[in-house]
Design a binder for these strands. Structure first.
Lengths: 204, 204
DNA sequence: TGTTGTGAATGACTTCACAGCG
DNA sequence: CGCTGTGAAGTCATTCACAACA
């Protein structure tokens, strides 16, 4: 497990993995850094360099066996297993996330849902029953969850993040439209489509 | 309108804007690069350097008037206006996007929805009626839309992107879990929560 | 005094270019 | 011969550090 790999490299690995899985579905068995790069808009050298942080996965003169490289990437990213995920905030967005089909095929399963609104506690959402926030820490410990999704309004997201960090959560996917600060050792990724839209309009 | 601003800088401007609007709501009137940086996890120098690409927005010894800086950022990002957006793909995700409340407050309104599935054409989704794909180009021209959201399955996303580019769309927010290639002059931003999850698990 | 705006210095990332190997 | 893996070179981004100024 090499240290000092730039985070920007880590961010590209899932993109590579997604492309490899797509090629596999299309019946391909072998690819090259050049072919991958053209598909993804990266240079061939960058792909080779990124992979070189972790080992040697190709054959000179041939390229990469797609299934093998994909499996190696899954190991590197720790997605060669199932991850339980807890969800905080069961409004419209939280409901959509429980129903969202994109997580399970990648090994992420929302196993508990929490909300601070007493009128929501006890309601069923898909196969889950919404629980009170005061059960959060004990449930996280019971499940052994390390990953949480925040889908609350912006106003409560920081408070929720504090609670999650205290309960031992180390990875947060934040859908609340606000930046949050977390203790060292906790990582946050942000999902805010409006932000991406604003990044697009700059160029219009 | 300065040229040659790194895209990575453009990507941070919406984050700054979001934080400024949050501070405004909290009753603040003035902030500093240091205060903003602490809130966002950036260095104060980086924020000042980013802003310096576009002008001088602060007062030495004082900081930035929040409402003024926010308005300047809106101008820079071209979000000081309303943007019509077309949606392609009206499955579960497309439905959720039409209902999603995060776009309209930022000036983005989904004004048309399209699907290639004949059984969906004519159905109502919120206030919209799903239209056939063969109306796409004429509707984009009629509306003057420059922005599109792709919410189709991965298998059709590239084809849809080609059609959108041909119809004059210059900015695409792609929810399909696949990388797409587009002609020069067209920009794409990706929304794939599973990718972000995989980026998080690397560190677990 | 406190904070900005900015060249200069440092650090990080990407590309180059080629040895090495299948 | 073709493609990988990788040091070296080049480019780009961030941080430093301070003059300028309210």
């Amino acid at each position: 497990m090499p240290a000092n790999v730039p985070d920007i490299v880590i961010g590209r690995l899932p993109v590579y993995l997604r492309a490899l899985e797509h090629l596999l579905k299309g019946g391909h068995e072998i690819t090259s850094s050049q072919e991958l790069g053209e598909q993804l808009g990266y240079s061939a050298a960058q792909i080779r360099k990124d992979l070189s942080f972790f080992g040697e996965f190709g054959k000179q003169g041939t390229g990469y066996r797609i299934s093998h490289l994909a499996q190696e990437l899954r190991k590197i990213l720790h997605v060669d297993r199932e991850w339980p995920v807890v969800l905080v905030g069961v409004g419209a967005l939280g409901h959509a996330l429980v129903r969202y089909g994109g997580f399970k095929p990648k090994g992420f399963t929302i196993v508990s849902a929490f909300d601070s609104d007493a009128s929501k506690v006890g309601q069923r959402v898909g196969a889950l029953v919404v629980q009170d926030m005061d059960k959060l820490a004990s449930e996280i410990a019971r499940i052994g969850a390390q990953i949480a999704i925040i889908a609350t309004p912006a106003a409560t997201a920081q408070e929720v993040a504090n609670t999650l960090a205290k309960a031992g959560i180390q990875a947060i996917l934040n859908y609340a439209p606000i930046s949050i600060t977390v203790p060292k050792g906790v990582r946050v990724q942000y999902v805010d489509p409006a932000l991406l839209m604003q990044r697009l309009t700059y160029y219009l």
